[in-house]
Amino acid sequence: MNWVRQRLDVIAPFAIAIGLFLITAAVIPGYGNLTSIRSLLLLSSLLGIASAGQTLTIIMGGIDLSVPAVIGLACVAFAVAYGEGVSPWVIGPIVIVAGIVVGAVNGLISRSLRVNSLIVTLATATIIYGAIWAQTKGDNRGSVPDGLTDFVSVIGWTGPIPLPGSVILWGALVLVFVILERRSVLGRWSYASGANPGAAELARIPSLVLWTVVFAISGGLSAVAGILLAGFSSAANPQVGDAYLFTTLSAVVIGGTPIIGGRGSYARTIAGCFIITELTMLLIGLGLDEAAQQVSLGILIIVLVAIYGRETHVRMQI
């Protein structure tokens, strides 16, 4: 019992994710079938890939508000270039490198100028949206290769596995992130830097390098998410990532990683991604329109965060 009590904040998000699934399955007929489980996994994987970098930046004590803009940029650049005949094996890596560069610049500026990353990444996002508009003038044709569409299709297969590639990619990413967080120098530095930025400097943690690399990871993964979403929506759409500002942050916080950093993990964010996706599917299943969905989602997130907020507060008092 004591064991459970001590780990309540770790267990809670996963318990909620499972509970929510069972409730939805009971309420909505047909929710428990294979297809809806596959779509739950697919939607969660897209959110999970977009939230991975966000989790690490938040643990480190930063925040990346440029995620939706980089998603939009990647989506448009990839679909437009492919539509004009560029090979996906050329444009894909270019787009990802562009995301990495945007992220690196975010980290570099935030750290070297000591400007809050909230402001820097918000500014970067604005610049990117402006640049997309200037380039395309709102005329966003373009197309995506069939392989990519299959990669993010609910009925897609990965070799013999009855799951789309996106889900498999997410699984691999989870493994990499768990190792990164626990077993790498970068991971330990990130936690230390988020836990006590003043002490991190005096403990000889190279903050500038750390911030640049972590934000670059976030930028790169946002670009990957953008390419996947291009496949999902089959077109160049700069607004495709807009929902991901709120949902990536929510996934991190609902998972139980405090927004001030220093604690938490990507494993928790996985639970957060499932909770958000399940909530959305539940609300759609209940027949709520998009406006009502947003209101409900907002309320539910405040309730969940309030629960974790209390948890963090008690621990902070040690």
């Binding site: 936690y191 230390a192 006590n196 003043g198 005096l202 220093g262 604690r263």
Partner: peptide
Amino acid sequence: KTQGIFAPLSVLD
């Protein structure tokens, strides 16, 4: 507190 210890991190870290 403010310049030394990383409170949530382990003794090893």
